[in-house]
């Protein structure tokens, strides 16, 4: 069995008195490709942020590489939802990727040649090297999404967290993105928050349904019939209209 990368035990979190997550247990092993699905407000993004140490749990324990999140989160490449990014800021695409080259504890305030080579490498990988001198505010939603992925990859992560990476991307872009993620999965663990059932069924090894509680379904359960067999209370948005895909958990 491969190495344990993430362990979450009896995690509880509330926001302004409203429970967001309760009794969450989760183990993620090396090279896993796990999708977090669930309704909006179900706690998917919150769970990512707890594992990154950006939020503090009310109760429970989180270990990343057998260390507290604050000590290990820099080994995670984080691709946030693009909507929170400060779009007015005058920075070029290359500037943004270089932001990922800052290593914790490094006193180096500038960017050396090594950083620029690394930034170029990931930007070429994502097909955005041509955009390097373009201001971020002029980029399309899909380009901005790739840029955030490039910034995360520039950190040379061992784990990749992606929050709704396909929200602003067209069908062709989505296909390319998933091919890339599959290739990256050969060398890193991936956690993906997604509404997109296609990716869940065809790419992921495991699915966790997050709606206050977390229900884990491993590879053996992901079959063609999983849509019916799964029992997660989620409304999934597919092709522009919502439809209920999975039946309720019995708890």
């Amino acid at each position: 069995m491969s190495r344990e990368i993430i362990r979450v035990e009896d995690l509880w979190f509330s926001y302004n008195g409203h429970p967001v997550l309760r009794e969450v247990d989760l183990v993620v092993r090396e090279k896993a490709f796990l999708a977090l699905i669930g309704p909006n407000g179900g706690g998917k993004t919150t769970l990512l942020k707890l594992m990154l140490g950006l939020l503090k749990p009310d109760r429970g324990r989180i270990r990343i590489f057998d260390a507290p999140p604050a000590a290990a989160a820099h080994r995670i490449g984080y691709v946030p939802q693009g909507i929170h990014i400060e779009k007015g800021l005058p920075v070029t695409a290359l500037d943004v990727v270089l932001m990922g080259r800052r290593m914790p504890g490094s006193k180096g305030r500038g960017h050396g040649n090594r950083d620029k080579i690394a930034a170029r490498h990931v930007m070429e990988q994502l097909g955005i090297w041509d955009l390097r001198d373009r201001p971020v505010r002029g980029l399309s939603g899909g380009q901005r999404q790739r840029l955030l992925i490039a910034r995360a990859l520039a950190t040379e992560p061992e784990v990749l967290f992606l929050d709704e990476p396909t929200a602003n991307v067209d069908a062709k872009g989505q296909g390319e993105l998933y091919d890339l993620l599959r290739a990256l999965n050969a060398r890193m663990t991936i956690l993906l928050v997604s509404h997109d059932l296609m990716v869940v069924s065809s790419h992921c090894h495991a699915v966790a349904c997050v709606n206050e509680r977390l229900h884990y379904h491993d590879e053996a359960e992901i079959t063609d019939e999983m849509m019916g067999a799964f029992q997660c209370p989620v409304d999934l948005i597919a092709h522009g209209h919502p439809h209920r895909v999975l039946r309720s958990h019995e708890d």
């Binding site: 942020k49 990154l52 140490g53 950006l54 989160a73 820099h74 995670i76 984080y78 946030p80 929170h84 990014i85 400060e86 800021l89 920075v91 500037d95 943004v96 270089l98 932001m99 990922g100 800052r102 290593m103 914790p104 504890g105 490094s106 305030r109 500038g110 960017h111 971020v136 910034r151 950190t155």
Partner: peptide, 22 residues
């Protein structure tokens, strides 16, 4: 000037900046 890169990273995306040790 000394904190230039950290300041711009923070303004662009505070959470990511925090993960990078800013």
């Amino acid at each position: 000037g000394y904190f230039y890169h950290d300041l711009s990273s923070m303004a662009f995306d505070e959470e990511f900046a925090r993960l990078r040790g800013v």
